[in-house]
Design a protein around this nucleic acid. Sequence first.
DNA 1: GTGAAAGCGCTAACAG
DNA 2: CTGTTAGCGCTTTCAC
Lengths: 337, 337
Amino acid sequence: MTIDQRRAATIEDVAAAAGVSRAAVSKVLRDAYGVSPAMRERVTAAMVELEYRPKVAARAMRGRTFTIGIEIPDFGNQFFTRMLGGAMGALGGTPYQIVIAPAEEGSRQGLRAIEALVDRQVDGVIAVSPRVDQRGLERIAASTPVVMFGRHDLSDDYDTVAGDDVAGTAAAMQHLLGLGHARIAHLTLNESDQAERSPHGVRLREYQSAMAAAGRADDVEVWRTDEGQDAAYETVRAAIEAGTTATALFAAHDELAIGALRAVAETGADLSVVGYDDVPIAAHPAIGLTTVHQPGDVMGARAVQLLLERVAGRAAPVHEVFQPELRVRTSTRPPAA
Amino acid sequence: MTIDQRRAATIEDVAAAAGVSRAAVSKVLRDAYGVSPAMRERVTAAMVELEYRPKVAARAMRGRTFTIGIEIPDFGNQFFTRMLGGAMGALGGTPYQIVIAPAEEGSRQGLRAIEALVDRQVDGVIAVSPRVDQRGLERIAASTPVVMFGRHDLSDDYDTVAGDDVAGTAAAMQHLLGLGHARIAHLTLNESDQAERSPHGVRLREYQSAMAAAGRADDVEVWRTDEGQDAAYETVRAAIEAGTTATALFAAHDELAIGALRAVAETGADLSVVGYDDVPIAAHPAIGLTTVHQPGDVMGARAVQLLLERVAGRAAPVHEVFQPELRVRTSTRPPAA
DNA sequence: GTGAAAGCGCTAACAG
DNA sequence: CTGTTAGCGCTTTCAC
C-alpha cells in the first residue's frame, strides 16, 4: 500500500484502517479511559502505518493544543536564552511544545506578540517583555493562563517569577561602595522608570536608595540609553568625554555593561563597571565583568511549572522570587584616587 | 452593552451585531471580493465593538494560518539571532506572524521541532539546524513550503539560503597563511563531517584543501569539540597543554573561537584565532576576534521572502548563496618565530 | 451584493 | 468496552 503524499492521514483514515470508530482512535490518542489493549494495539499499528499525525488546529477547536507560548522581547540578551533553556528542560517528557513569539519594540508590540500566541490557541503564555501593559495582560489572563517573567507584578490574575532585584542591586552597590567608590553612576534604559515594578525600574530605584543611604544622594547620576550594546557604548563614551567624575558605573544589565566596557577600553577611563544577569560572556577573562548572577535556567523551569499548574486548574496567584548572587571579576577595583 | 469576558466573540456574534450573515463577515475579514462599502463599515464597527479576534485554529481548518515557523538549533549562537532579526523585518507589514520552535540536540530533534510546527499548521517553515535529515525535510516539503537556512542542499523540493563557506574559509585561511602561519589547526564540532553540505562540513573540507594547496597537508590538525563556548575552551586548553605546535587556529564559528580565546588568554599561548559569523561581541575591543562576517540579517530576510514566494505557489527551487567578508581584528598576528 | 449550507479534523458526551 | 453524534469557528462554493 503506497502512502498518498497529497493528503495527510486523518483520524478517520486510521479508524478505517484499524476497523474501529473515530472515537476509539481519539481515545487511544488521548490515553482516555475505556480502550482494550487489543484495540489500542491495532489502532497504534494503523497510526504508524499511515504516518498519522493529529492536526493541532482541529484539536484546538475542542480541547488543548499542548503548546505553550513564550513571548520574548530581545534575543540579543543572553539571559533570556538561559531562561529558555530552563523552560525547555522543564517541558522535556511532557507532551507540551514551546513556541516563541518575538516581540518588537514597545509594550504594544509585546502585547501584540502575546495576542498572536493566544489567537493560535496556546494553552498558556509566559510573558517576558518588561514593558507589556499590565491591564492588557490581565485581560488575556482572564481566559488563558499567564506567567509573567521578570517583573514583580502582584496581579491576582497571573503568576510571576522574578529575581530579587532589590537584593541584587544592594549587593552590587555594596560591593562598589565597599571598594571605596563614592561617585557611582547608573546606566539604564530610557523608559525604565515608566514601569514601576519592572526589573530596571526596581534597580533604578534601589540604586538611588543605596546612594542616599550611603550619604551620596548628591552624586546620583543616571545615564539613559537605548537598548543594545552599541547604544550603551555611545552613551558611556559621551559621558566620559563630557568629563564625568563618576568612578564607577552600575549598569542595569550585562549587555549595557559590556557596551560600557568597550567605552572604558577605548578611552582608557578609570571606571569600574558592574552588570546584572551574568550572561555567559561576562565570565570570559577578556571581559571579566563583575555582575549580579541570576539563575535564569531555574527561573525559566519554574515559570513553566507554574504555568502547567495553572493549565491544570490552579487559580490562586503565585508570586515567586529568586535570589541573585554577586560575582566579582576584574571590571571592578578601588578608585584610583 | 457589557462585553462578556467568559467567551470570546465569534464570527457569528459579529454577524449578529452587524445584522449580516457569517459569510459576509468572513469576506470583510479576508478582503474578499463582493462587499459593499456600507456593509464593510458596519461589520468593521461590530468587530471593534466586540473586540473580535479570528481564531487561527478555526481558520487553519480551511485556509491559511498566516504563520511561518522557524526552527532554531541554538539560541546561544548570536548569528541566528541576527538572522531572526532580518526575518522579522521582512515580515513587517505583512499579516504573517513568526513562531519559533527551538530544537534540542540531534538531527531527530530538529525534525521533531519542524514537525511540531507543521502539526500546528504553519504556512511554511524555515529550517536552520544544520543536521536535520534531508530525507525527512523533503517529506515535509512535499506538503509544506520549506526553506533551509545555512546548508548547501540542492534539493528540488525546497529552497536554500546559505553563505559561501568555500569563499569564507578561503579568505580566513589566506589571511592566516599570508601572516606567515604554517601550522594551522581547525576547531570544529564532533559531527561536522557527517553532514556533507552543512556549513561546518564545508568549512572543514575547505580548510583541508587550503592546507594542501599551501603545501601543508601534513600539518592538518582537526580539533573536535562539543557545542558551546565552555566545551571549546576545554578542548583548546587541552590541546595547548598537550603541547600543540600549531600557531594559528581556524574555528568553525565564533562561539568556538571565543572559547578558544579564553584558553589562549589563560595559558598565554601564542595562538592566532579566526572565527566565523562575526557575532556582535567579536568586535568588542576586549575580544577583537578576526572573523568571517556573514550578512545574517539580509540572509534571514531573503529566506522569508523565498518562503512567501513558495507559499504563493512557486514550485521551482531556488538556491541562493551570500558572500561573506573577512574582518581582521586583533586576535590574529604573525607567528612569533 | 449577499446569504445558506456544507464541511475541515477532532473531542466529548451519550447510548448501546 | 465500543460506536454514534453533535458541534468547535471559520471558509467557500453556490444559489438567490
